[in-house]
Each structure stands twice: as C-alpha cells, then as structure tokens.
Design a protein around this nucleic acid. Structure first.
Length: 509
RNA sequence: GCGGGAGUAGCUCAGUGGUAGAGCGGCAGCCUUCCAAGCUGCAUGUCGCGGGUUCAAGUCCCGUCUCCCGCUCCA
C-alpha cells in the first residue's frame, strides 16, 4: 500500500533522506538538502545512470555498440549561450503566452486589430509578420461577414494598450478561439549573478537553466578531441537552476535541481529510428531500477504541445511517474526529444562560425549539422520516485512502514547485528562488518533488542540484515533476514560478500 | 501571483494571559537467543520569525517566513 505525500515527506525528514534547505532560518522556498540516507540514494541513482548509459554496453538500432562520452561543463557560461538557446528571450522583455497553442510572444511585438466597441472580436498578430497579418485580417472579415476592412472602425493598437476585457475577446496568432492570451508578464526564469566585483549590466551572467547547452557549446571541442563519430552521444549530469514562480510538491519542482542529460548526435535521416530506440531504452531503464509498470508510463506529446525546437522532429515523449500528489495523473521524470539541429545551428550562427561549424563525415564525404535525440532526466525527481515507489505501509510490523528499494538503489545494503551483545557475538559481527564495508555500504549495530534494529533498517530501506547468533560460533553460518517478507535463511559467513554483490546486481521483481 | 488552512521537543500532540508538558522516538547503562520487550538514568525547546498591547504573551493584535490544499504558472 503506497503512502500519502505527507507521510513520505515526514519519513524523509525523520530518517535523514531529505531536509528543507536553511531550515534553522525558517527555510527557503524551493530548495532542498539531502541527508545521509538521501545522499546515498541519489548517488546510487546517478551512478546507475552513468554506469548504464556512459559506461554501459548498449547496442543501438544499427547493431553497433552505442558510443557515449562524458562532459562536465560550468554552471555559469557566456551570456550569449542563452541568447542562442532562446532562454534569454523573455528575460528582459514582457512576454505573452497563448494557453491554447503554448506559443510565447514578445508583448511589444504584438498588435491587435479590431473595432473599439463592446463585445467586438479582436485579432492579435506579430506586427512584422505579414502572413499573420493577412490571416488575422481574413479571420476578422469572415467573423464580421464583411468584404473589406473599415479604416474608421478597424484600428490597429499595441497589445500592451488594450484592456483585460478586450484581451479576453482577442484571438491569438496561433489560436482557434479568443481568450487564450495571457497578460504581458515579466519572466525571471534564470537566476542572475555578476562575474567580477563591479555591479554593472555588462557583468551580468546567468546560472544555467539546463545542462544541455553546455554540451552543445562544446560539441566541436568533443568532436575535435575525442575521435567520436556520428552517431554518438555526450552525457552530462549536474545542477541547473530555474526561478520557478511556484515551487511545489516537495522536491518535484525546485529552483535548484540536478539533471542527467544525453545529447545523442545522429544523421538527420536516422532520427525516427534513434528516437524510437531511445524512447524504449530510457523507459526500460527506469523499470530496471525498481519503478513498477503500473506507476510508470510513456506519453507521446501531441503535435501542438511541442516546444519551438522540436516542431518538425520525429517526436517528443515524456516518461512519467504516478506520484501521490499527481495521482491519478502522472508527473514527468524524463523527456526524450528529437531537437533536430536547432541548437547546433543556433550556436553556429551566434558564435559567428556559421556553416564552418558543421560536422564532417569522412566516410561519406558529407558536411552537415547532426540532429539530436535528447533524453533529459531529473535526478531529484528520480530519487523522489524511488522513495514514493518504495514506501510501503505494513501495520503488522513494528515500524508500520518499510522502504522497498531495489537492492542496487538502497542507501544501506545490509545491517550486521550480533543477536545479543555477549558470548563473543559482537566480536564476530564486527569482524564481518569490517570485511564487508570494504566493498559495500553496510551498518553495524549492537545496541538494544534485535527487533528494534530490524525495525530501523526497515525504515531506512535496507534489504538485508545479517545476524550473528550462537550457531554462527558453532558452524560458521549466519541468519539473513529479508526486508520485504521478513523471511530468514542461513548462509555461510565466507560466501556472504559475493552473495550480497549478486543480490545488488540482480534483477528486481 | 490570488484564496483557504497550518506552524509548541526528532515525531504525534496537550497547554484560552501567570514557573513550557505527555507519549513515542533518541542517547547511556543493565538486561535480552530473532522482529520497536523490560528496568534505571540523561538530553532534549530561538513555542516558525519580527514587532506591538500588557505588571506578565505559546496564548491577544499587526507584519513576515515556511509548509499543505485549490487556482495561476511550469519557454
């Protein structure tokens, strides 16, 4: 039985998985710290990703081993990076969103056509866009059933000059009905900082809102220095920052978060094939670390939902998890997007390199901008999903709850306990502990009753407890207590290390 | 950003203007031969924070922060 979000948050705090940042000063909205157990859990997730993606032996749809190299780029980059990527647009200018088409327009570029009279239908379009202007004029004439525009009634005004009521009667450039345009708003999505000590606009820089641009900006460096050939990928994990309007739902939407991103570069004509392959690959990976099929789904985006960089691509999909706070809906864990060559072209143009930045295919004697398939996952969201998935109520046991982590993800792999604190048992237990801790995160505890120690391990999600009793002294076996069904079995002390390794690497049902 | 609710020990809460408490948990010791047993002792606190009213504020008033719920937002 899954838990409510409140219960999960309480356990995270009580057992040291996740704390609110700066709590002793009253907290700071949208920032979270990981405690001892949470740090291990998140690290296990990240290590698994890096191991399986970068160091793994994936075989691609073309039958060849998949080549992925790592990158660790800076959080602060040249401000022009964000102009090229499109992130800077809207940072300094008021923007208008269309709720129907998800398009975003600069408020000072939009004009509104229509009559100034109560109830009149208005049409907005980008002033410099002749196509949109023609479309708006045609729509207005059709709506009012006229042949030509009446210059005395049909006036053109800046979008920023109309009232809220008029805005509700205004149809957006890419909308089918009026009322979908929001008021003009300032977006401060990126965190701003200064490079150098002088407070001057020329020194402004921004904390990256995604790790992806560090990869695109280094594309040529990697190609020139590492002998990679398309198709290949560059992987990076690291912090990203977004000044969200409303951080909500525990760590799900926070202002500082960690991404695990791959930009996989391919020949444009293989996009459909690679997109489909990555889609499946990433979905299976989340399953492999313990997220169950019933809480995990793969959702293909509708065409009109696509971001600017993905409009013409092979597709975009989200791998989504059913969190307690989204239930019965799902929340995004990872997005897989065909970004085409949008980013590489943008950086080629803005950096002044132009067509010289194209990739050269020696074998085919062909020069082109590779397309990109981007699997972009959230490490904090993944960690949160692992916690939600693991949280299991059980009224029959002392802790009332246990965390059913995949052994590979569990922060502590095993607890090592003398059954009682005498008769030589603590000494044997301590010896086993010292041996096992060389290769695994294990914990030794000789205090209090055995039941209490089991209960604590249940709440930490430790899959195994190894108990040394009087029989251990006689025949060299110990008791393995399994977390999920509280089953016990005896195994020889000498094999316990390799047995534990097998359990961690094994499949999880 | 708007509306509603909440904030006292690690947790659950009691405390209606007069010396801040209980249970659980934690720690130490004793005990204990398999699931938070028992005994003894110890530590626990900016009553979210700031200001005001009052002889006196956890308690009344104002502000603020954080969290939760619903909208909004989430290129």
């Amino acid at each position: 039985m899954p838990g409510s979000m409140d219960e999960i948050v309480a356990l995270c705090r009580r057992r040291g998985f996740i704390f609110q940042s700066s709590e002793i000063y009253g907290g700071i909205n949208g920032f979270w710290d990981y405690g001892p157990l949470g740090t291990e859990l998140k690290r296990n997730l990240k290590n698994a990703w890096w191991h399986d993606v970068v160091q793994g032996e994936l075989i691609g749809p073309d039958g060849n081993p998949v080549d992925i190299v790592g990158l660790d780029s800076t959080i602060i980059m040249h401000p022009k990076v964000w102009v090229a990527s499109g992130h800077a647009t809207g940072f300094n200018d008021p923007m208008v969103d269309c709720k129907a088409s998800t398009q975003r327009y600069r408020a000072d570029h939009l004009v509104v056509l229509g009559a100034i009279e109560p109830g009149a239908r208005l049409y907005a379009f980008v002033q410099a866009d002749d196509e949109q202007r023609a479309k708006s004029e045609k729509a207005l004439l059709k709506y009012e059933r006229r042949e030509t525009l009446d210059p005395t009634r049909h006036v053109l005004r800046p979008f920023t000059a109309i009232s809220d009521d008029e805005r509700s009667r205004t149809q957006g450039p890419d909308a089918k009905e009026p009322g979908s345009l929001t008021a003009a708003r300032q977006f401060n999505l990126m965190f701003k900082t200064l490079v150098g000590a002088i407070e001057d606009p020329a020194n402004y820089a921004y904390l990256r809102p995604e790790t992806a641009q560090g990869i695109f900006a280094n594309f040529q460096n990697v190609v020139d220095s590492s002998r990679v050939k398309v198709p290949f990928g560059i992987a990076q994990m690291g912090k990203a920052f977004r000044n969200e309007v409303t951080p909500r739902n525990f760590t799900f939407r926070s202002r500082e978060f960690e991404q695990m991103e791959i930009e996989f570069f391919i020949r444009p004509d293989t996009a459909v094939e690679w997109y489909g392959w990555w889609r499946q690959q990433r979905f299976r990976w989340w399953q492999s670390i313990g997220l169950s099929s019933s809480n995990l789904q793969l959702r293909e985006h509708d065409r009109d939902e696509l971001a600017h960089y993905a409009k013409a691509g092979a597709g975009v999909c989200d791998i989504e998890y059913k969190f307690p706070f989204t239930d019965p809906d799902f929340g995004e864990l990872e997005g897989v997007a065909h970004r085409a060559d949008f980013d590489l072209r943008q950086h080629a143009e803005h950096s002044g390199k132009g067509d010289k930045a194209r990739y050269f295919d020696q074998e085919k004697n062909d020069r082109y901008f590779p397309h990109v398939i981007e699997p972009s996952a959230g490490a904090d969201r993944g960690t949160l999903a692992l916690l939600c998935e693991a949280y299991t109520r059980d009224e029959t046991r002392a802790s009332k709850v246990f965390l059913r982590f995949h052994p590979r993800m569990a922060p502590i792999k095993a607890g090592i306990f003398p059954l009682v604190n005498k008769d030589g048992m603590p000494e044997i237990a301590e010896k086993i502990w010292k041996e096992l801790r060389k290769s695994h995160v294990v914990e030794f505890d000789e205090k209090q009753s055995i039941g209490k120690r089991y209960a604590r391990m249940d709440e930490a999600g430790t899959p195994f407890c190894l108990t040394i009793d009087s029989q251990t002294i006689q025949d060299g076996t110990l008791t393995v207590r399994h977390r999920d069904d509280q089953r016990q079995e005896r195994l020889p002390v000498g094999t316990i290390g390799s047995w534990l390794t097998d359990q961690i690497q094994g499949r999880f049902d």
